[in-house]
């Protein structure tokens, strides 16, 4: 899943640079949480931007959409107020409908902004915007560790499956723990080698990164102002 989303991020159509994208989403999210009109504007604009960026948007939206619907259903039957409908012992009240409705809109709106960021921005692009050197270094190193861990996990899982290692609960727990241990050690070794390779190449403490194109700042400002204007409508 990580790989597929990463390839989507690489191939998506970008209408603005990574800096503008990250700042646009980070500044828009608080506004989305605050105001209903801003939520509607953001939902429309970010959905259009995400659809333009990649068709994967609809696939990405599907699982959370089901999740949001289930969750708001729980809210619908939880909050007390004036009863407007009932199903056996479950009651729907005026207050629960109001809260469920606002939660639904807020979730979809915030998620559309978040999806736009996720679909268009790779993790190194995001991390490169962080100015604290040590934090940037540990984040990029752990990103490499995650890739190594996933790679190791896949090969160890295939090997354990071939040896019927997951047959029965007891064996499943033991095999999973052994895989965990091997995954941990092999990844530790590989990340350590990566560290040594960096040192051997006179690593100065600053992670090299590809210079990404800027641009799209005016568009980002216009979208932000449109969402901001929702507060005054």
């Amino acid at each position: 899943m990580t790989e597929s989303l990463e390839s989507v991020q690489m191939n998506s159509k970008k209408v603005m640079g990574p800096k503008a994208r990250v700042w646009l989403v980070l500044l828009s999210l608080p506004l989305i949480l605050l105001d209903t009109q801003s939520q509607l504007i953001a939902l429309t604009l970010f959905s259009l931007l995400s659809l333009h960026a990649s068709r994967y948007y609809l696939r990405l939206l599907l699982a959370p959409a089901v999740f949001i619907l289930f969750s708001t259903t729980v809210i619908l039957f939880t909050i007390e107020g004036k009863e407007i409908a009932s199903l056996y012992f479950l009651k729907i009240t005026d207050k629960s409908v109001e809260v469920a409705q606002s939660t639904l809109l807020r979730c979809f709106s915030a998620f559309s902004a978040f999806c736009y960021l996720v679909l268009t921005t790779t993790l190194p692009e995001f991390v490169n915007l962080i100015r604290v050197g040590f934090l940037r270094e540990i984040m990029l190193l752990s990103y490499r560790a995650i890739q190594v861990l996933l790679e190791e996990a896949e090969s160890l899982k295939i090997s354990a499956e071939a040896r019927l290692g997951f047959l029965g609960l007891r064996r499943w727990v033991k095999t999973t723990a052994l895989i965990g241990h091997m995954m941990f050690l092999r990844s530790f070794e590989r990340v350590e080698k990566f560290e040594m390779a960096k040192e051997a190449r006179c690593y100065s403490g600053i992670f090299p990164s590809a210079r990404s194109e800027g641009g799209g700042k005016i568009l980002a400002v216009m979208i932000f102002l449109a969402i901001f204007s929702g507060l005054f409508i």
């Binding site: 270094e137 540990i138 190193l141 752990s142 490499r144 560790a145 995650i146 190594v148 861990l149 965990g180 995954m183 941990f184 990844s187 530790f188 990340v191 350590e192 990566f194 560290e195």
Partner: peptide, 10 residues
């Protein structure tokens, strides 16, 4: 650093 990175990955 390596141990921290792997633990985070874990």
């Amino acid at each position: 650093k390596s141990l921290l990175a792997v633990s985070l990955g874990f």
